[in-house]
Design a protein around this nucleic acid. Structure first.
Lengths: 268, 268
DNA sequence: CGGAGGATTGATCAGGGTCAATGAAGGTGG
DNA sequence: CCACCTTCATTGACCCTGATCAATCCTCCG
């Protein structure tokens, strides 16, 4: 939900870049390609190894997985994948922040935001079906890409890896169900109130939280327009919330919680 | 989505029963409990074996899975599980139709409808976490229950079963994502139009489909009130649709499709 | 300094919810 | 066998949430 666990202080206000597709082969870093020099590869290997998804795999499986893998840095606002394309690679966010979103006709909606160590497109990889969502970077991000075929191969012969995969997939599914419940059972004002409480929990703060995303992204994620989000923030004054730019001051946690009525089975 | 692939013609119009929890031990049939006589167990075993989830498992794994499993018949409108409870059993719909739904405060929404061979609560079983959704029967239904612990045990030592599980889970996840997209990107009228087209596809009919569910269930599933559903049906007259009770007559598929604009990545 | 994009605010409108009344269909009990 | 009851479906009147359109302001950046 939140984009990384740390509060990101940006240099400018936001970063404005035209979305672009990546196809610059020179920026691709094949993990164990010798020509890149010995120092690059081990660093990346360690980085990938540290990801929870690979923590339990044995060395042989890990070797198979990274044999065809890539690590790549992307600038902000770069479209990584487009819904409907074949799922050739499992993607893992190494650093940075990635938005998953979807389009239909001329409409677009934010589905979720991914921070460090999050995987995406796992289900498409498993089923060998097209992506259901598109992905773009929000910040400068480093992304690991593992060929889908290698995922499927190792899955069959390494039950620890299989366990990691199925656990990750179950988590994604549950997150999606929670999201659906959130949208169908709550009004936009209630969603916003709970969103603020969630940020408060994630940021481990008491009386103030920082909105790390553009408000329009938050609005889209919560299923409302930017205008409506502005007005919703204003309405929350009645429930102990005040907003100053990117900062939300919670003046009365009890009142906000009483209004939001957070539920473990939606927000947990 | 649709409740079984066949069109179910009901004797009465609907079945009205007060929802009840099951705890009548005498109705539980332990699969290979000898005291029940030899003829029951093999029948059930065969039935379970036929389920796609177990089709690829070897005999030893299968034996482990059914050792602690139950098969039980439930009357209509029986609440099988309640959200928040611990996930002790994986449930599989053998025959009949089960609704998954959720509550928050005094509101309730239908999440999905399950027909034959569908599993539910798989993710909770895997993660050993509480159910996110409640389940109730809509028709008279037979449900297979496999202890969660056995699922996890067999998962680790039978990679074919693991593959079935992960495939099923990926399917559920993708269905949930599609559902979220449907709700966030479409108006209620558009959702209804696409729902009708989906029924048409499932029922393999040309110019008329049967609504197998109560309209209020359909309304809740589509995220609208029963009143609004009535009016939505009326509005669809402008797009070549007419309704007569449980029957929907599609007078102009081209017009309906043009309005609904079905998308593979939502409805496929 | 000017341009671009986001945030906010106001005015207006439409989609959809709520409340209430009526109708239709099936089950129930006398 | 028929009157009645229950529940869902439909329709009308009304209201509220949230979307749309437009204008303004702000910040950042070239």
């Amino acid at each position: 939900m939140s984009c990384g666990s740390k509060v990101v202080v940006k240099a400018g206000r936001y970063i404005y870049l035209v979305a672009q597709r990546y196809f610059d082969a020179s920026r691709l870093i094949k993990i164990n390609r010798p020509s890149l020099g010995e120092d690059v590869a081990p660093k990346h290997l360690e980085e990938i190894r540290a990801n929870p998804l690979f923590a339990a795999t044995n060395d042989e499986s890990f070797a198979t997985l990274v044999r065809g893998a890539y690590v790549q840095n992307f600038p902000p606002h770069t479209e990584l994948i487009t819904e409907g394309e074949p799922a050739d690679f499992l993607h893992i966010v190494s650093t940075g922040c990635v938005e998953l979103f979807s389009n239909w006709r001329d409409r677009e909606t934010s589905m979720t935001f991914l921070g460090e160590n999050a995987t995406f497109i796992l289900a498409a990889t498993i089923k060998d079906r097209p992506y259901l969502m598109s992905a773009r970077t929000l910040n400068k991000s480093r992304v690991i890409m593992v060929p889908s075929q290698d995922i499927r191969t190792v899955f069959e012969r390494d039950s620890d890896f299989a366990k990691s995969i199925v656990f990750e997939l179950a988590s994604c599914y549950r997150a999606s169900v929670k999201s659906t419940k959130n949208i169908k059972l709550r009004t936009s004002l209630e969603r916003l109130a709970n969103y603020i409480l969630q940020l408060r929990r994630d940021q481990e703060t008491n009386d103030q939280v920082v909105l790390e995303l553009e408000k329009r992204k938050i609005a889209s994620f919560l299923g409302m327009t930017p205008e409506n989000l502005s007005r919703a923030f204003a309405s929350l004054k009645n429930h102990g919330v005040e907003v100053d730019g990117q900062t939300v001051i919670i003046k009365d946690v009890v009142a906000l919680t009483a209004f939001a009525k957070p539920a473990l089975l939606i927000d947990g």
